[in-house]
């Protein structure tokens, strides 16, 4: 036992607890400690004293610190009890954090909304704009057509030939404005009924002795043409004009049963 006393008082056990011994020396001490309970007891007392010293060196308020540390450790190690004070603080911090992110989120959402609203109204405006441009172009074209027609009708060389309704359509009428200088015949077909589907009006130039009809053209797109004035080329020495209803594409010779209007050119 005296040997053990001596071993204990040599100071090796303190170095063992410090971790200041080599691995071999440490293993020897461990063996001694396992063999002799008084050595183990001594080691535990040394350890206890050093631990208390270290605790004394730890900064103030270890309770609060540990609580905060434990809360940080939670993802890996669930901790049951946390002091209420620090819980409240942690919660406040969390609430403020959540509130801040919520505000940010709402702000972002708002910006996003505003942005897409602006984008939408921009697209809408662009669409409206292009529609209006189209309308303006259409109106200009119409106006241009009307001007041309007006100019054509006002021309000094024009002869106005009224065409009267015939057997199939007594109420129908039409007018031919014929310029025999530039060989253009303007057909005002305002007074003709809409042709049935699949059929088309065909305009004929007629010479009387003998009666010879010559096609000068079709009134295509009758329905879509708003002012119903059609310009056709007519280089014939016409004595009369007639309009018949023909199958789509027109016919070689007029179908006399479908003669809608007819009028003779007044002798010059």
């Amino acid at each position: 036992m005296a040997e053990i006393e001596e071993y204990i008082s040599s100071g090796i056990l303190e170095l063992y607890v410090y971790g200041a011994l080599s691995e071999t020396e440490s293993r020897e001490v461990t063996n001694m400690l396992r063999e002799y309970p008084e050595v183990e007891k001594e080691v535990e007392e040394i350890e206890d004293a050093l631990q208390k010293l270290a605790v004394g060196v730890a900064p103030y308020n270890p309770e609060a610190l540990l609580a905060s540390l434990k809360s940080k450790l939670t993802p890996r190690t669930p901790v049951r009890s946390i002091t209420p004070e620090s819980t409240r603080r942690t919660k406040w911090v969390a609430y403020i954090g959540w509130a801040a992110s919520l505000v940010l989120l709402i702000g972002l959402f708002f910006l996003f909304q505003q942005n897409s609203a602006l984008r939408n109204s921009l697209t809408e405006a662009e669409t409206k704009n292009s529609i209006m441009e189209q309308q303006i172009a259409d109106i200009r074209e119409d106006a241009e057509n009307t001007k041309q027609i007006l100019a054509a009708i006002r021309d000094n060389n024009i002869s106005r030939i009224p065409l009267q309704g015939q057997g199939v359509a007594p109420d129908a009428y039409a007018t031919v404005y014929w310029n025999n200088e530039d060989n253009t015949a303007y057909i005002d077909a305002q007074g003709l009924p809409e042709p049935p589907r699949g059929q088309v009006y065909q305009v004929w130039s007629l010479t009387m002795q003998p009666l010879t009809p010559t096609s000068i053209g079709l009134l295509d797109d009758f329905v879509d043409d708003d002012n119903k004035i059609f310009a056709l080329q007519n280089a014939n020495e016409s004595e009369a004009f007639g309009i018949t209803l023909e199958p789509e594409g027109g016919s070689e010779s007029p179908t006399m049963e479908q003669l809608y209007v007819l009028g003779t050119v007044a002798a010059p």
């Binding site: 010293l53 730890a58 900064p59 270890p62 610190l65 190690t77």
Partner: peptide
């Protein structure tokens, strides 16, 4: 953790000397 964290904190703090960093290291 309960048994050793405080004394460990003391050791770390004695070397580092700065509370917040010592806390990080303790973790």
């Amino acid at each position: 953790y309960q048994l050793y964290s405080e004394s460990t904190y003391g050791i770390i703090f004695s070397i580092i000397g700065e509370k917040d960093i010592a806390e990080e290291v303790l973790q």
